[in-house]
Design a binder for these strands. Structure first.
Lengths: 195, 195
DNA sequence: AATTTTAAGATACTATTAGTTTCTTATTTA
DNA sequence: TAAATAAGAAACTAATAGTATCTTAAAATT
């Protein structure tokens, strides 16, 4: 009397390739948001994606890689459009605000949990550490406009605002407040360049 | 024919209290240095300390707490002696160099591994994040000597050099180089105060 | 259209290890 | 000397990472 087909979803229908990958990454992301990193198990992700563990292990070497991929899948890096408002201050603030995105999207707790096993390098990538040429370009334009003197610009000063924001993120696991942002730009960065 | 007492160390002799704790923390530290955080198991620590798991679990709630305790046991924070060389630059450099200590002692790999499960808060403590009054005092003295103007000093600028060193540590897991230190002090910190 | 190849999915398995329970007995304290 | 406390041994549970095997759906090839 019992219906044998408990699961209504097409039995015997198999997804492959990108479709399957997307389903797994989505499931991993959902798990991540629901139970957090420490409680995320491959088993549950597999079940949630209506597939099985070996399918996952064929593509990712371990738990961390899977989660990293899931995050990258959901958070493609900002288009790196380089702001050009005509004012250095404004441009810099736009860039720094972008860095808040990751935390705003995945939330402090998850980030905190991730912090762990992802290890330093990939994590840094998440936090937009990789070399971008955004700041140099913004500064170059400011020099051309005569806003600042080029001889004041050093490698370290170029990196300074992003370093400070990143530090704040790593310590607080919170989005940067408007005030902190302003302090970094107005009390530290710009004075070093303008003087 | 076989000698039954394989272990020569006094059988049936039990350590207690501080002596026992010290032995466990030492064993945990040694394990940590030998196999690294991810491979450290309570079992091995117990064996190494010639005791057993329950004894450890009676004192620390889990692996992380034990390791944290082991580190704190081995790295009591610097005596927080406040440098007073008569020159701001020199004083600051001394303070910043102290921050290298943790990494120099436990090494980048271990720190990297720890980064993980310790979670943000205790880790920050390891990195000397807690409020100290070292910098303010150094700056106060510099003001009194007439080296800098007191009106230039803001909360953020006070924290700036240590923030930058900490950022560097968190990103590189390496001791700060002499050059980086100099840049932070000479190209960023002092110019903001002297101007 | 039939055949071959590839890879999905199910299932069962090994191995590790965290953390617990129980019990015996050494050490301390009264 | 007796009672209370805590160490240590041993065995156990439970969770879960990662693997191996097998069947068969889907895709590629002929």
């Amino acid at each position: 009397m019992k219906d044998k087909s408990i699961d209504v979803t097409a039995v015997g229908v198999r997804r492959r390739g990108d479709e399957l990958v997307a389903a797994i990454l989505q499931a991993a992301w959902d798990e991540l948001m629901e139970v957090g990193f420490p409680n995320l198990t491959i088993e549950r992700v597999a079940t949630r994606a209506r597939t099985s563990k070996p399918v996952i292990y064929r593509r990712w070497g371990n738990r961390e890689e899977l989660v990293l991929a899931a995050i990258q899948h959901h958070l493609p890096m900002p288009s790196e459009q380089i702001p050009d408002t005509g004012r250095l201050r404004h441009d810099v603030i736009i860039v720094l605000k972008r860095m808040n995105r990751l935390i705003e999207e995945i939330g402090p707790e998850i980030l905190h949990g991730l912090m762990s096993v992802l290890g330093g390098i990939p994590f840094s990538e998440l936090l937009n550490l990789r070399r971008t040429n955004v700041m140099p370009l913004i500064l170059k334009r400011a020099v051309e406009r005569g806003e600042i003197h080029s001889e004041k610009i050093t490698e370290r000063i170029i990196r300074l605002p992003m370093d400070l924001v990143r530090h704040e993120l790593l310590i607080t696991y919170q989005p940067i407040s408007e005030q902190t942002l302003t302090e970094i730009v107005d009390d530290i960065f710009l004075p070093l360049l303008k003087k």
